[in-house]
Amino acid sequence: MSYRLDPVPVYTPSSTRYHEMQYRLVGHSGLRLPALSLGLWHNFGDDRPFANQRDIVRSAFDHGITHFDLANNYGPPPGSAEENFGRILRKDFANHRHEMIISSKAGWNMDAGPYSFGGSRKYLMSSLDASLERMGLDYVDIFYHHRPDPDTPLEETIYALRDIVASGKALYVGISSYGPELTAEAAQMAAEEGCPLLIHQPSYSILNRWVEEPGEDGESLLASAAANGLGVIAFSPLAQGLLTNRYLDGVPADSRAAAGKSLGMDMLREENLTMIRTLNSIAESRGQSLAQMAIAWVLREQGDYGSQTVASALIGASSVEQLEHNLKALENTEFSVKELNAIDAAATDAGINIWAGATRSKIHGDS
């Protein structure tokens, strides 16, 4: 007896995928990013079903999300998010690579040993080679130094990024979580080498506004990035899930906080919960969920730094339904002065910036 096996359906992207997404220029470059980008920090490791991961990536692309953000250590285990994304690329996107912006990073711990942390030439170059192998790619569109490293001369890190672009293994390079003065110094150094930094990826949300605060020289990170031609892509606009309706009535058993993943229970103190309940009321008055308003707020116009200060908001998704819900944030990204004042009155720093940008003095050991 023989059995007929039904063929696996071939993925065909939506023909309307570019109709509704907004695309914004990144800094002083010709590259455009979608207003929402998909981050694979969570939900793409080996602890999550591959079929679900595949559905999320397909849905994102169908809605015009062309940018997919990874790092060498995303998982768990480290490296598995890139491996799983590589499988999705091979299965569904072999003919669409030219339509995709794929980024990776190195800087945080990858594995044991002295060559899997920091900003050395050895780590950055070998990490990118490994990332490309895991994803089955010849190049990434953007490669970031994931964090400032006080133990490595800034010149070594920047020159490594320069040489990575020269090698063709990355089209653009950027930095993440650098403070304003260090951002300016890195940008100037890279420009002098003929390899301008494209982009800065900081944490930024209603409850985490360190990028707006003056640094050692009195200039904020947003101002420094704008002055030096870098675009900004904000990660964790939902404050690790705090700016959602998940915690309005307690801590769900399947939540990130309950699992101890980046959102600690100390962040759910009553002071913070009171803030998010007030913010939730403001969102409801706008006809949005709290998550939708929080994403829209990050993408709002900020006249001090240019009309599109943040080129893209980097969001995660544990399901297609969650992704599609958050995409609706783009239906209303305008805020009245009254709404902005109400948000400012309700929200203070929630103590959730666990990636605080390093200052120039910490890197150089200044007194």
Rank of each mutant, 00 (worst) to 15 (best):
S2Q: 13
S2L: 14
R4H: 15
D6T: 15
P9N: 02
V10P: 09
T12Y: 05
T16R: 12
T16Q: 11
Q22G: 12
Q22V: 14
R24F: 10
L33C: 09
S37F: 06
G39F: 07
G39N: 05
G45M: 06
R48A: 14
Q53V: 03
I56T: 04
S59V: 05
A60G: 03
A60T: 00
H63Q: 13
H67S: 12
A71R: 04
A71S: 11
Y74W: 08
G75Q: 07
P77N: 06
G79C: 08
G86V: 11
L89F: 07
F93G: 04
R97K: 10
E99M: 09
I102N: 00
S104Q: 01
G107F: 07
W108G: 12
W108T: 11
N109E: 13
M110W: 15
F117D: 13
G119I: 07
G119L: 03
G119H: 05
K122I: 14
S126N: 14
S126G: 10
L128G: 05
L128D: 04
L128W: 06
D129G: 02
A130T: 13
S131K: 05
L132Q: 05
R134F: 08
F143K: 00
H146T: 03
D149I: 11
T152I: 06
P153I: 01
E155M: 05
A160S: 14
D163S: 09
S167H: 02
K169S: 13
L171G: 09
L171A: 13
L171V: 12
S176R: 02
S177Y: 06
P180R: 07
P180T: 06
A186R: 03
E192A: 15
L197A: 11
H200Y: 08
Q201G: 03
Y204A: 09
L207I: 10
L207K: 08
N208P: 01
R209N: 05
E212I: 11
P214S: 09
P214E: 08
S220V: 02
L230E: 08
V232F: 04
I233L: 15
F235N: 11
P237Y: 06
Q240D: 09
Q240L: 08
G241E: 10
L242V: 06
L243H: 04
L243G: 10
T244I: 10
T244N: 09
Y247V: 07
P252L: 00
D254L: 08
A258M: 13
A259G: 10
E270V: 08
E271C: 03
N272F: 08
I276H: 02
A283N: 01
A283Q: 00
S285F: 01
S285P: 00
R286S: 01
G287Q: 02
A294F: 05
G303I: 08
G306H: 06
A313I: 05
L314C: 04
L314I: 09
I315Q: 06
A317Y: 07
V320I: 12
L323F: 12
L323M: 07
E324P: 08
E324S: 05
E324V: 03
N326I: 04
A329Y: 03
E339Q: 11
I343W: 04
A345W: 04
T348Q: 12
A350V: 05
A350T: 04
W355G: 00
G357V: 02
T359N: 10
K362G: 11
H364V: 09
D366C: 06
